[in-house]
């Protein structure tokens, strides 16, 4: 899922302070799991911003609403009234939702979150990065652990010299991806694979190749 983190109130206030009717708009799928941008969080954020407006002595009406996903047209219908009412939207979706919404409506749509990564819920309250969507999955060769997402240098052929007692040289709280890969290959009795040279990667399927698009002729209406 996509993980996000709410921006500081001060920064949000800078975005919305010139508007009269602001809608704080939640996205109740990915960013609701990390409890940053769901409809409940949008509601809480709206009250915080109302307090901020009072403190600042600014006349402003702030409402909240939300839908299941801000990255698909069909979900917007039920919130159409609220969206039309507002003269600006503070979206607590990921960057995809914010942009998708801005493309649909001729009014300012501001980001309420910093979109941080594609991750998993390691345990309650712990969200961890697992994939960078490079467009060409190499997990089959690395024991199911991605060095692109999990090695600070995205090394494809093994650990750097800074791997110490299982952690990465940048931070003791970060596990060394290659230690994990080696442990996993050993567990699977596949250590001989470690000596296969990883081919030079084709990054054209990654960000380097420009915006990516998938078209499925078979599912189009």
């Amino acid at each position: 899922m996509i993980v996000g983190e709410q921006k500081p109130i001060e920064e949000l206030w800078e975005s919305i302070k010139g508007h009269q009717k602001v809608l704080v708009f939640g996205c109740n799928t990915c960013v609701a799991v990390c409890q940053q941008g769901g409809n409940k969080e949008a509601e809480i954020l709206a009250s915080l911003l109302r307090m901020k407006a009072t403190q600042e002595g600014v006349e402003m009406e702030i409402q909240d609403s939300g839908i299941e996903r801000q990255c698909e047209h069909e979900f917007f219908e039920k919130a159409e009234g609220r969206i039309q009412w507002a003269d600006a939207v503070l979206s607590t979706a990921c960057g995809i939702g914010v942009q998708f919404m801005a493309e649909k409506y001729a009014k300012p749509v501001y980001p309420g979150l910093n979109t941080t990564f594609l991750g998993a819920v390691e345990k309650l309250g712990h969200y961890v990065e697992r994939c960078q969507a490079c467009g060409q999955c190499i997990l089959a060769a690395t024991g199911g652990i991605c060095p692109i997402a999990r090695c600070a240098k995205r090394l494809l052929n093994g650990p750097c010299g800074g791997s110490t007692k299982g952690h990465c040289e940048i931070n003791k709280d970060v596990p060394c991806a290659w230690q994990l890969i080696v442990d996993r290959l050993q567990q699977l009795n596949l250590m001989e694979r470690y000596e296969d040279l990883a081919p030079i990667k084709n990054w054209s399927t990654d960000r380097a190749g420009g915006p990516r698009k998938l078209v499925r002729e078979d599912v189009q209406l």
Partner: peptide, 10 residues
């Protein structure tokens, strides 16, 4: 560096 078991394979 760690892991030591891959120092020679590396």
């Amino acid at each position: 560096a760690d892991p030591f078991e891959i120092r020679v394979p590396r």
